[in-house]
């Protein structure tokens, strides 16, 4: 059953000058599931994300992706293996058009990314695919707009389209709903559900109703450690989790 898990960590630990941000985390992410990582502020969720995608180097521990040890890989290579992340602040290229934004993700496959002597028109071959991707998130009509001009929710949609361009096996979404209105939340939720059909999604999210609606499995973190794990129903009844969220009790 081991290969039922696409991503596993063992004893994952990150210390910052004496402060332990992530302690001994053993994460098991099932293939084709939507897995949510929740917890109060400072629980180490984003640090965890940064460790998984190698934006931070773990102090101790091991990360296995598809059974392969990726603890020592570089960030860019993690993406090449099929694990692509998003960021808390919407990650678009603000002064490029929507089409160019998506095309950046597509163009690596052409193998001409170092060709400084070739015309950028050679990239037009990717336009059809880029438009298809924009269409899939409902942004096709804005293809020539600079990304900076989009409202926040649509930037997020663009970011997802760009991520999808890499056809990743696994997507890591860092607070995809942060700062969004109701309407956008519904739209992006729908989008995440749609793209998760053939993929694995691991997300950090504060909006618990989104988490409840979308996730198959939830890991609750507190002070850098895993507090509980399970479906929304089991986790939300766990007294320790309730305590962590309500902030009552000892301490």
């Amino acid at each position: 059953m081991a290969d039922d898990h696409i991503l596993t960590t063992d004893g994952l630990t990150k210390e910052f000058a004496g402060f332990v941000a992530v302690r001994n985390v053993a994460l098991r992410v099932r293939r084709h599931s939507i897995h949510a990582l929740i917890g109060p502020n400072g629980a180490g969720k984003t640090t965890c994300f940064n460790l998984l995608t190698k934006f931070l180097r773990p102090t101790r521990g091991r990360i296995l992706y598809n059974g392969r040890d990726i603890t020592a890989e570089r960030s860019a290579d993690i993406a090449r293996l099929g694990m692509v992340r998003s960021f808390q602040i919407s990650a678009v290229f603000p002064h490029l058009t929507l089409l160019e934004n998506v095309r950046i993700a597509l163009q690596r496959t052409l193998g001409t990314s170092f060709h400084f002597w070739r015309s950028e028109r050679s990239l037009d071959a990717l336009n059809a695919r880029a438009e298809e991707l924009l269409d899939s998130v409902g942004l096709a009509q804005y293809r020539d707009l600079a990304a900076v001009e989009l409202p926040y929710g649509r930037k997020r949609a663009l970011e997802i389209a760009t991520t999808l361009a890499l056809d990743p096996e696994m997507m890591l979404l860092d607070e995809p709903m942060a700062g969004m209105g109701h309407e956008d939340i519904d739209k992006i939720s729908e989008l995440i559900r749609k793209v998760a059909a053939r993929r694995t999604v691991l997300m950090v999210e504060h909006n618990l109703s989104v988490v409840a609606k979308l996730s198959d499995i939830i890991t609750v973190m507190r002070r850098g450690e895993i507090l509980a794990e399970g479906t929304y129903d089991t986790v939300s009844r766990n007294p320790e989790v309730i305590e962590a969220y309500m902030g009552t009790g000892h301490g």
Binding site: A91, I104, T112, E120
Partner: peptide, 28 residues
């Protein structure tokens, strides 16, 4: 030509948002 090449596009992406370019698999 360099500015308006596939390479130039990646350069602009790096200037605009380097972590994102990395997360898309570019060894910046």
């Amino acid at each position: 030509r360099t500015i308006h090449s596939p390479f130039g596009q990646v350069l602009k992406a790096i200037r605009e948002n380097e972590p994102r370019a990395v997360s898309l698999g570019y060894r910046v």
